[in-house]
């Protein structure tokens, strides 16, 4: 699994680009707080599957790109991504064994941790946002997680052929 051939990375990079596009795509105003954090969901899946290639370093770089794309403090998402992916890689063997329901529950907890890091940095930097902007992505991200896994499993299997 750890052998890194070029071309194997392409589907993963494309899936990350699609996630980033979804992260900045316009939504109706009422749906805006419930926009799932596509990029972190995609990263969680890939780091769980290929922890050797997609670990904290990749998470950090992608986090910086998200920071620029969303105009948040440079390093905010990078830090949150790094912490979340650290946890994912650390426990990737356990996570792979989990049935879908338990995995989804774990993703809920991990997304909570992720939003907490963002909330904490916002507090230090003096940005105050309504609480729904923190809870919304956790709930919608958990709800969408099974779908994300199904799609990414499909991507992985197609790439292997």
């Amino acid at each position: 699994m750890s052998d890194a051939r070029a071309g194997r990375h392409l589907p993963i990079i494309i899936s990350l680009i699609i996630a980033l596009t979804l992260a900045i795509a316009p939504l109706p105003l009422w749906a805006e707080p419930f926009r799932p954090d596509w990029v972190i969901l995609t990263l969680i899946y890939w780091s769980m599957t290929f922890p050797g290639n997609y670990s904290v370093g990749v998470a950090w770089i992608v986090g910086l790109i998200v920071d620029v794309a969303q105009g948040t403090l440079l390093g905010q998402h990078a830090l949150a991504f790094t912490i979340v992916i650290y946890v994912t890689v650390k426990f990737h063997l356990q996570l792979r064994q989990f049935p879908m329901l338990q995995l989804t529950a774990t993703v809920f907890a991990v997304l909570g941790l992720y939003q907490f890091v963002l909330f904490w940095i916002n507090g230090v930097a003096g940005v105050n946002a309504p609480m729904v902007t923190y809870w919304g992505p956790v709930l919608s991200g958990t709800a969408i997680w099974p779908l994300v896994t199904i799609v990414l499993v499909g991507v992985r299997q197609r790439a292997r052929r």
């Binding site: 699994m1 750890s2 922890p51 050797g52 670990s55 904290v56 370093g57 950090w60 986090g63 403090l73 440079l74 390093g75 905010q76 990078a78 830090l79 790094t82 912490i83 650290y86 890689v89 650390k90 990737h92 063997l93 940095i121 930097a125």
Partner: peptide, 28 residues
């Protein structure tokens, strides 16, 4: 025992977290 794919994962985390905090400080 835990993760054969990730040498010095904790160290990398600390390094990147420290770097992020530094960047945020400068950016802010």
């Amino acid at each position: 025992h835990r993760s054969p794919y990730s040498p010095a994962l904790g160290l990398r985390l600390l390094l990147l977290a420290g770097l992020s905090i530094l960047i945020q400080y400068i950016d802010h």
